[in-house]
């Protein structure tokens, strides 16, 4: 267990180091996000401002799309350079390879979000600091959830013939369920729990729990079937 975890951390560290050597990828993800902000602004800005509930929802939509650039190469680059065989034959459990890639995706996306979230919240005019604890919890769990789905999607798109077309096909449908919950939670953070209509008898905590359950389900499902993705 501990050796698997340390192997996962080693893989994540290796990927982060290689990522920092070729800085342009993080930067281009960030630029893509900014372009998305501008593109969405054409659709939603009316009278010089954006309704807070629309802006806070767009935050996640933009992160979701930016994930496409960050998560797609996670395994595709390994299979292109031929290092995947090395990972598959390494004397470590398959789930630690998956977990390492999830950590890497989380850190990569986290670095982009550190810059992105403040900029979007200023441009779209909403504040996530009404409930900092819930806001950071949501962002952390949400990013981990997207990274978990994205790594799996990247692994699944390896055997396909048209890899770049197929990645969104795998990533979008599996990530949308988490996205819906994330948008709901962020709306609650921005507008306050009284302003958002949620089902009777449901609390913010329960939605957060469902999100957490989604993350855990995704991680365990993917980790437990991952050795099948590495074997061929």
């Amino acid at each position: 267990m501990t050796s698997g975890l340390s192997a996962a951390l080693a893989i994540a560290k290796k990927d982060i180091v290689t990522q920092f050597r070729k800085k342009f990828e993080i930067f281009s993800m960030f630029l893509f996000a900014l372009i998305a902000v501008i593109a969405f602004s054409f659709a939603v800005v009316s009278g010089g401002s954006v309704p807070a509930e629309v802006g806070s929802a767009l935050l996640w939509v933009i992160i979701f799309f930016t994930g496409m650039f960050g998560f797609a190469p996670i395994f595709l680059s390994e299979s292109e350079t031929g290092t995947l065989r090395g990972l598959a034959t390494a004397p470590i459990p398959a789930w630690s390879v998956y977990l390492g890639k999830v950590f890497y995706g989380f850190v990569l996306m986290g670095i982009v979000e550190v810059f992105l979230v403040p900029i979007i919240s200023v441009l779209f005019g909403f504040s996530i600091l009404n409930d900092p604890l819930l806001a950071f919890g949501t962002i952390a769990v949400g990013t981990l959830d997207l990274a978990a789905v994205g790594s799996m999607a990247s692994a699944l798109s390896m055997p396909s013939e048209s890899k770049s077309t197929v990645f969104p096909l795998v990533y979008f449908p599996t990530a949308t369920s988490g996205l819906m919950l994330l948008i709901e939670l962020t709306k609650i953070v921005v507008l306050g729990s009284g302003a958002v209509v949620i089902g009777a008898g449901l609390t913010v905590l329960l939605i957060f729990d469902i999100l957490l359950a989604h993350l855990i389900a995704m991680l365990t499902l993917s980790a437990s079937v991952f050795h099948f993705a590495l074997s061929p």
Binding site: L156, M158, S177, I198, G199, L221, V225, F228, A229
Partner: peptide, 25 residues
């Protein structure tokens, strides 16, 4: 092999669809 894996990881969406009327108004 990969289709089976995809079929497994897509299942949480079914649960969410079933539970959606309890989560949202």
């Amino acid at each position: 092999q990969f289709g089976s894996i995809f079929g497994i990881v897509a299942f949480p969406m079914v649960l969410l669809s079933y539970l959606s009327i309890r989560i949202w108004d």
